[in-house]
Amino acid sequence: MGGGRKVVCQAFTTGYIMEIFLQLTLSGLSQGAIFALIALSLTVVYRATTIVNFGHGDFVMAGAFFVYVLVIYAGLPYLLSSVLAILIMFVMGLGVSRGFIDPIKSGPHIGFAMMSISLGYVLRGGARFLWGREVFPMPRIFDMEPIFIGELVITGDVFFVSLIVAILLSVFFFIFYRTKIGIVIQAVYQSERGATLIGVNVRAFHQSMWGVGLAMGAMAGILIAPISLLHPDLGATFLIRGFAAMTLGGFGSLSGAVVGGLLLGFAEQIFGFYISSTLQDITAYLIILAVLIIRPAGLFGRTITVRV
C-alpha cells in the first residue's frame, strides 16, 4: 500500500508532471525534426513542379540503404557514406525528373501521381528483392552518455538529430533567402514565365529541385535509420507524416512544412501519453482531417482566391 501511495504522490507532483511534459516535448521535437525534413523535401518538389511525390517515403528508405551498403559492404566511414548517399540521391532525383517526369509532362496530372507511386514501389520491391529477409541494424552513430537535468533525459539520438536537422534547415533557409541561387529559386516559384524571360532554364530548375528534394529525403532516412531499424518498408511510415506536416503547415509553404513537422512530432507524443497510445498512430490522419476542415490552407499556406 505504501508503495502505491508513493506512486500516486509522485504522479501528482507539479515537478514530476512538468518533467514528463518536457520529456515528451523533447522526444516529440526530435521526431518532429525528421518529419519536418521530409515535409520540407516534399514541399521543395511540390513548390517547383506542383507534383506531390507519393513515392517519397521509398526515396527516404533508399537513401538509408545506400548508406548501409557503403558502410557495411564498402567499409566507408558513416559520414563519408552519408555524403555519397546524398549525392547519389541528388543524381537519382535528376534522373527521375529527366527520365520519368519530363516525358509525361503533356499528359494528365494524375500521371505524375501514378508515376511517383510506381517509382516508390519499384524501389521498395528492389530493396525487398535484395534484402527482403532481414531487418538491419545501422551503426549507432548517435551514442553519447545521456545528459540528465533532474529526471529529464537528453539522449544522443535526441541531441544529434535535433542539432543536425537544425543545421541543415539553417543552411537551406540561408541559401533560399540570402544567396543569388535562392533568389533565382524564389523567382521561379513566383512566376515560371517571368523567370524564363530573364533567362532562367526552368526545365533544369525542375530537375534540380527533384534532386534537392530526394537528397533532403535521403538525409531524413540517414538520420532515422540508426535510431529505428533499416528495412524496405521504412519509408511508408514517414510519407503520411510528411503529408500531415505539409497539410498542417500549409501546402507549398517551406517554413510551414518545418513548423508542421515539429508540431506533428509533439502532437503524437501528447496524444500518446495524455489520451491513448492507440491514438498515436493515427495522429497524422487526425491532423489532416482537422486542418482540411477547419483551415484548409494550413498555418502558413496562402488562401488563393480565383476571380471569375
Binding site: I20, L24, S27, I224, Q269, F271, G272, F273, S277, Q280
Partner: peptide, 22 residues
Amino acid sequence: EQTLERGQTDATAQVLKLKQAK
C-alpha cells in the same frame, strides 16, 4: 495497457506511462 503499432519509431509516451505505473 499500452499500444505500439507497427512501423512506429518512438516509444517515449508508452515508456513514460509504463514507468509511471511501476
